[in-house]
Design a protein around this nucleic acid. Structure first.
Length: 577
RNA sequence: GCGCCCGUAGCUCAGCUGGAUAGAGCACUCGCCUUCUAAGCGAGUGGUCGCAGGUUCGAAUCCUGCCGGGCGCGCCA
């Protein structure tokens, strides 16, 4: 057990003892009781709010209760001293042996340090990316891809059974247009001059090879015949090729989904009809007419049309929502609610990662999930804000014309997978962010990617250098030789499991990036002590024992950095170059 | 008109789901770095947490109403 888990468990047990001793009434809810490092380290190593939280339900006052708890805490072997401060905080100082033990634990657990079972094996489905299969991935998709992937890793590390899922939107009008665009390329491949790609079609060069392949396979069989004959074929081929391309783009980022779900297949399987039927049976589907939306430019073409609607407004949405169009086909929402019903049948918790431009549809899908699962499924829609690309401080112009939008593959090629992934996690998901090509590769402490990598590389360099100073075998680490700075570093490392747990619970993978930056800063500060004072370096000439001990500490730091970077999908570097 | 997100130091952002005196980097000021592990190091200045109420032992954090910025708002996805 990690140190925080031990103290927290001991506190729980001790509160039970107090109930047995008649010092506390039975049945108090401990959920709000926390054990955490105080913001101000001068207050001690750990603080608990137990007395303040429990005083009122226990019918006593915080200070008096704190005294009782403090007395018992003083009996714990790892607790050196306890005092009560402010409105009833209980501050603890731990014996140094507790921190020494934590470092040993870090090096023993190695890659498993920080892993917990808070997920208790619950099945969580994380759906992310789900870019339309109409072209290569561009930077607009990138952030959601990284956030979703890191969150999935975080949840897996926290004891959840995770499914990483991609929803292929292969049933709507956009993929019909894609099929028609490929048909143009097909005619082009047969020698026809198609001129400029008309407005409304996909102009990208990436469709050319698909047209060529179809031309090679079928010759002119599909020229001059109605699209009814060829559109399904062309669409399916195009979608398959686009998905191959998208999978390749994702692989560049180190992202591999467990499951790709097809909208079209789901529709064919009858699951959409079934889901709508279930809602109909619940009385939540009716035919009706919506009011005209109050958009700024009032739509002249608007006319009231009766449609099949879902009573989303009964579940917190602002309006009821159409599941079928007047032509009888399902809307995107109709398909999507069925898809979520399907996911809910396979998982205990659902998480969707969406671009912020879809914010307007969150309420309706939450309403649908609530209705379909009787409010039982945990469901979080995580919105990821836009990324503004900058080059030398100037926004990069994005155009839909082919060759002029920034693809994900281009960016990964230019700055590298690790830089892209780390940078995408240096801001919380719901804040907008700038991605400056120059800044993200800058080798300075202003750049968190570099700063964290550099800390790890510095530690890796010790392994190489120590052989020069001490060619023989090193003795076992003697942790009693640590001073206050070394113990402070361990205290910071000991926070890693708490940060992981918090990030997993809050679905906020960016917390790992900030934690690693802080840990790296603390390490660099420690390292810099050696600039002026050679005896404070890790490798101390003439003191093999101290060197061994500090190497052990450094190894622990490197381990925590690796574990954190691993969750982010970023490789730790052995050396900078 | 409505909904969602955001508003914290001059700038870019954290703030551990309600805790103690609100933090980091940049910028700025001062000192250090011609021999060491310096793609630099140390210290300092800088805040009505958009505004006004409310909830309670306690609010940047939760609630309500305003102000300002971004995104979105039927039969697209």
């Amino acid at each position: 057990m990690t140190i925080f888990a031990r103290i927290s468990a001991a506190l729980d047990g001790l509160l039970d003892d107090m109930v047995a001793a008649g010092e506390l009434p039975a049945g108090l809810n401990h959920a709000a009781v926390t054990v955490e490092p105080p913001r101000d380290p001068s207050h001690g190593d750990m603080a608990t709010n137990a007395a303040m939280v429990l005083a009122k339900p226990a019918g006593t006052n915080p200070r008096a209760l704190a005294e009782l708890i403090a007395t018992r805490l003083r009996g714990l072997p790892e607790v050196e001293s306890v005092d009560i401060a402010g409105p009833g905080f209980i501050n603890m100082r731990l014996d140094r042996s507790a921190w020494e033990a934590e470092l040993t634990l870090i090096n023993e657990r190695a890659g498993g340090y920080g892993r917990t079972d808070v997920g208790k094996g619950k099945r969580v489905n994380v759906e992310y990316v789900s870019a339309n299969p109409t072209g290569p991935m561009h930077m607009g998709h990138c952030r959601g891809a990284v956030v979703g992937d890191a969150l999935a890793s975080l949840l897996a590390f926290s004891g959840y059974e995770v499914t990483r899922e991609y929803y292929i939107n292969d049933a709507g009008s956009q993929v019909q247009t894609l099929g028609q665009s490929v048909h143009l390329r097909y005619r082009e491949a047969l020698g026809e001059d198609i001129g400029e790609i008309p407005e409304g079609y996909y102009p990208g060069d990436y469709l050319i090879p698909i047209g060529q392949a179809l031309a090679a396979e079928y010759g002119d069989k599909y020229v001059g015949v109605p699209d009814l004959v060829w559109l399904d074929l062309f669409r399916e081929r195009a979608v398959a090729a686009m998905m191959d391309m998208i999978r390749a783009d994702l692989a560049l980022l180190g992202i591999h989904h467990d499951l790709f779900s097809s909208e079209a297949e789901m529709q064919k399987s009858g699951k959409v009809d079934a889901a709508i039927q279930r809602l109909t049976d619940m009385g939540l589907i009716y035919e009706g007419t919506l009011e005209q939306p109050k958009g700024e430019p009032a739509d002249e073409d608007w006319a009231p049309v009766p449609m099949v609607l879902f009573r989303a407004s009964q579940f917190g949405d602002d309006s009821d929502r159409p599941v079928k169009r007047p032509n009888g086909l399902y809307t995107y929402f109709g398909n999507d609610l069925a898809y979520h019903a399907d996911k809910a049948s396979r998982a205990d918790e659902l998480i969707d990662i969406w671009g912020a431009d879809h914010a307007g549809t969150v309420k309706r899908i939450k309403a649908a999930v609530a209705a379909l699962t009787q409010g039982k499924a945990k469901f979080d829609v995580k919105l990821v804000q836009m990324v503004r690309l900058l080059r030398e401080g100037e926004p990069v112009k994005m155009s839909k014309r082919s060759g002029n939008f920034v693809t994900l593959a281009d960016v990964v090629e230019e700055v590298g997978k690790d830089v892209v992934r780390f940078t995408m996690l240096t801001r919380k998901a719901d804040a907008q962010m700038d991605f400056d090509f120059a800044k993200v590769v800058e080798a300075s402490k202003d750049n968190p990617v570099f700063y964290v990598q550099y800390a790890h590389a510095r530690i890796a360099s010790l392994g190489r250098r120590v052989k020069e100073a001490f060619p023989g075998e090193l003795p076992a680490a003697d942790l009693s030789r640590f001073g206050a700075e070394e113990l402070d570093l361990i205290k910071q490392m000991a926070n890693f499991p708490r940060v992981v747990e918090g990030a997993a619970n809050a679905h906020e993978p960016h917390r790992i990036a900030f934690y690693l930056y802080d840990l790296a800063a603390a390490f660099h500060g420690w390292w810099n002590l050696g600039n002026d004072q050679p005896e404070r370096r890790v490798i101390v000439a003439g003191d093999i024992g101290l060197t061994a001990s500090r190497l052990h500490l450094s190894a622990g730091i490197a381990q925590v950095i690796r574990n954190g970077l691993g969750l982010m999908g970023v490789a730790a570097l052995e050396e900078m170059n």
